[in-house]
Nucleic acid binder design. Structure first.
Lengths: 165, 165
DNA sequence: CGCAAAAGTTAGGCTGGCCGAAGATTTCGC
DNA sequence: GCGAAATCTTCGGCCAGCCTAACTTTTGCG
């Protein structure tokens, strides 16, 4: 577990607030609500909690901003997201949309230790001493072939199998 | 998301019931409670829900058993867990304990598509055309070195840094 | 058998999150 | 500068999960 003592939901709020301000906008309750797909009352409640933990500054009807501590946590969440996304899409070759969704769920659950190892692993793959840098490409094309063959086999062995997707 | 329409918690209940029966015991409320670290009333409640969804058979004071559908789902969860655990421990070289914990959280959150790609990826690493089979070993030792070097650097550049764990 | 211990359930209460409805505040256009 | 629209908060209510306390059923031992 990622343990910063926050629930996945609270991490999401922090991350979104960070993203909004990184995007150059003033984070507003409404905007946060839209991005998270929740209603404004939910955001109000969440902000109250986060304010209570000293992670955001926010007085009623006022501006929302991350405290230093809140910003640090938000950055950590975002870093986990970025790393996971890169791993899923670049290494595993998962479709962008899926990679985004999965990263967003995984980011709250990956421990520090695993994060570190995964980071190292990505570096390694790029620096990889085997083959000229491109072990990822090798995997991707091997995977394509393999997938293809298996699809054929499945086809050939007939039957109305369950959707394998 | 893994979407079987179950919450992570419900998936855990199914998984644990499966593990208990695979271990050759009759799953009992008490045993499930112990394995999950919850109280018996929580288990009772969960079983009621699962029974409602037709995933377990269980009448009051009676035996607990998975229906066919429940068993299928439980197996899927377990498969996800196994794959993740292998990836974390064998490939990334994460410590066993951590790998177990992380796999247990990740298993509820990995989409089918990502699961499939990860599975393929593990196969590939074992079959890997680059270097004779052992790209994992290469990573592990490269990681050890790199970690070492960085520890030194951190050491040398002094300062009471935050625990980098 | 008969009754205590173990196992299980029901009841009530808590927290985290979410919602809609309704009321408060701020902003903006005229 | 005032009123309507937009934004935000407060208030109840809901569901998932968990707990403790108290009650019921089953088990098993003397």
């Amino acid at each position: 577990m990622s343990d910063d003592g926050l629930t996945p939901n609270m991490e999401m709020y922090l991350k979104v607030i960070l993203e909004i301000s990184n995007g150059g906008s003033e984070p507003r309750v409404k905007m946060i609500a839209e991005r998270l797909g929740v209603t404004m009352p939910s955001v109000s409640g969440a902000l109250a909690q986060l304010r209570g933990k000293g992670l955001v500054g926010h007085n009623p009807y006022g501006k929302v901003n991350l405290t230093e501590e809140g910003r640090d946590l938000a950055i950590q969440v975002k870093d986990r997201n970025d790393l996971l996304f890169r791993f899923l899409s670049e290494v595993l070759g998962v479709a962008e949309e899926t990679a985004k969704e999965d990263a967003c769920a995984l980011e709250h659950v990956v421990s520090r230790k695993t994060f570190n190892r995964l980071q190292l692993f990505l570096e390694f793959l790029h620096v990889c001493p085997l083959g000229p840098g491109d072990m990822i490409g090798q995997f991707i094309s091997w995977a394509r072939e393999t997938d293809g063959k298996r699809a054929e086999l499945a086809e050939r062995s007939n039957e109305g199998q369950v959707n394998a997707n």
